[in-house]
Design a protein around this nucleic acid. Structure first.
Lengths: 338, 338
DNA sequence: GCTGGCACTCCCCGCGGGTGAGTGCCAAGG
DNA sequence: CCTTGGCACTCACCCGCGGGGAGTGCCAGC
């Protein structure tokens, strides 16, 4: 068990190291923080902290830097979330309020988050799985060719081409359109399969093939499009990383380009509250020297997608967490309004 | 006027420098290329080339490196476009053939281009301005609330909400939908304004307000959405740039995040044929040590958008140009088929 | 106009010593 | 038992120095 003062020493080390990017020594610590003890005592504490694996020295006779485990303890027990100041909150709201459509909301969010945290921002588009259907439209492009358009409550639109097994009249089309909408409009995606289950039977024998095709296409769209999109920004902030550049930055850029990796990354985050993954806690090895702070956001009480930032393990956790939480909150509001 | 041999020397310098990233000297040149003359002669030629501003030396008593002007001459007069090999062409086609929708086509193109050139790839979404309308759909979401959906021949879908000044009946809606489509389906965007000009008058007085609103929204969409989207990829390749890292890479990453800059960049390219912008020829100063190779692509004989790559001025121009041209060609085919 | 020779320039690299921050240990004191 | 000042020790970092080598410019000769 670590004494209160040792935790205080760890907090001070993290604080200073995040600020200076340089290993911090016992003397410097006592000068910058009012620990009320001498450097020698701090040295003893440091030895203990190192013994437990919370800090390490790059080489003998150098200062200490926090380990992943040290940051973990810091985040879990020593650091709070630093709330945004009132002007910052106003700025966030103003910036997001100008958005005109979903793409714009996501784009603005990503830029905002990157700017606030000075790190790389990742924003997932609102997920289809948890969304509800606003409208389903069917268009006849040619006698035996339809287009299915699906509109979600988050403002997303998906379209699919459908080749019909048999020609499909305008009246049948209008009929199907009406019945489909009366059943699924306003309902959650996950409920749709049951809701349309017996729809085919109620149509003329001639049309049943087409109806079945349409329905299966609709269901496919719901499933397929669960592979969600995301937007990233602020990659230029990676250049602030350190001196050992190419080695650090390259794998990160590579990881960022693989949407699958990022989606998994965000997906791992717990549903409610904020998640902080530190260094090697990230599954992807290219991100082993970065931390990811993520949180769910949504229009209602429930999260429909996630957003977060990727930065060096040596980051300002309280500030970053504050910014991420605040942005998520405001984006949720914006989505709820529209 | 430069003699044939001096041009040959320049070509050799560019070739070697691109390969080694190191200033190339007279001795090394005569060893690697069959110029048929001695190092001393090459030195004389180099002095002449330097005099004319095609090459420069980083410091006295070092080898020479090409200047922007040197690369320009190389591209214009000395280098051809290196065609892709048959296996490469097959790979391109296979890779692009798997695409399922427009987003996927663009996504695959960007990844492919980044991989082929080992540089940063930029692909503009097919532009709306030059596209044609495939279908316009009107949905009634609420008594006085419509949704306008615009579907283009390139597979793009845009939607807009419309608040009607007055309630609008289903029959009027169907009427408007039908008339609108009969007029604009298959027509170019640029022709739409004239085609719908007198449409409002033919409706009932009660409905004219709504019809006018719908039409103006449609026209707005056509104009607004001309601010086109694009996708970039392969930023990890920036790490191959050089040793003086942060200085070079940072402004490039920043420029890449500003879509406006990129759109302007691609926009400057001439419509037909390939455009190569070298170093300071790029308006944006963050890109003054990069070259941009871009070309239009399209489904028909006409370009609907552009794509290209951004890389160091020290790049393999023939190879890059070959890859860019080949990819543009195949993307055009894919778009034409779908 | 090409070539070989020659002197000169400077970058690069490895070496060595001085400096200073930081550590670990120990003995003394509360 | 914890804290503290003292002390010797360890290394990374900085800096200046000199040799090696690649490359250049110039010149005289063919």
């Amino acid at each position: 068990m670590l004494s209160e003062r040792r935790l205080e020493v760890l907090r001070a080390i993290v604080h200073d190291y995040v600020g200076t990017e340089e290993p911090v020594g016992s003397k410097a610590l006592t000068e910058r923080h009012r620990l009320g003890v001498s450097p020698a005592t701090v040295r003893n504490d440091m030895a203990a902290l190192e013994e437990e694996g919370f800090i390490a020295q790059p080489h003998t006779s150098a200062g200490r830097i926090p380990t992943d485990k040290g940051y973990r303890l810091f985040v879990d027990r020593l650091a709070g979330v630093k709330p945004m100041t009132a002007p910052e909150r106003r700025a966030i709201q103003n910036f997001l309020d100008g958005a005109v459509d979903l793409d714009d909301v996501v784009g603005r969010t990503v830029r905002l988050l990157a700017q606030l945290t000075r790190q790389v921002a990742v924003v997932q588009y609102p997920s289809l799985t948890r969304s509800t259907v606003r409208h389903v439209e069917l268009l006849s492009l040619a006698p035996a060719r339809l287009m299915l358009v699906l509109i979600t409550d988050t403002g997303r639109v998906e379209q699919r081409m459908i080749d019909c097994p048999a020609p499909f009249g305008e009246s049948s089309l209008a009929d199907l359109r009406a019945r489909l909408n009366s059943r699924v409009a306003g309902r959650r995606f996950s409920d749709v399969p049951q809701l349309v289950q017996d729809l085919t039977e109620s149509f003329d024998k001639d049309d049943q093939g087409t109806v079945a095709t349409v329905l299966s296409t609709l269901l496919e769209t719901l499933v397929e499009e669960t592979e969600e999109r995301l937007m990233i920004g602020g990659t230029a902030n990676l250049t602030r990383f350190g001196h050992d550049f190419p080695l650090t930055i390259r794998p990160v850029l590579e990881a960022l380009e693989e949407q699958v990796v990022l989606l998994k990354l965000l997906g791992e985050a717990t549903d409610s509250g904020m998640t902080v993954k530190i260094g090697h806690e990230n599954a992807h090895e290219g991100l082993s020297s970065t931390s990811v702070v993520s949180v769910g956001y949504g229009s209602g009480s429930e999260a429909v997608a996630k957003l977060g930032v990727v930065g060096p393990t040596r980051m300002d956790y309280p500030g970053t967490m504050g910014a991420v939480r605040a942005v998520a909150r405001y984006v949720g509001q914006i989505l709820a309004e529209s």
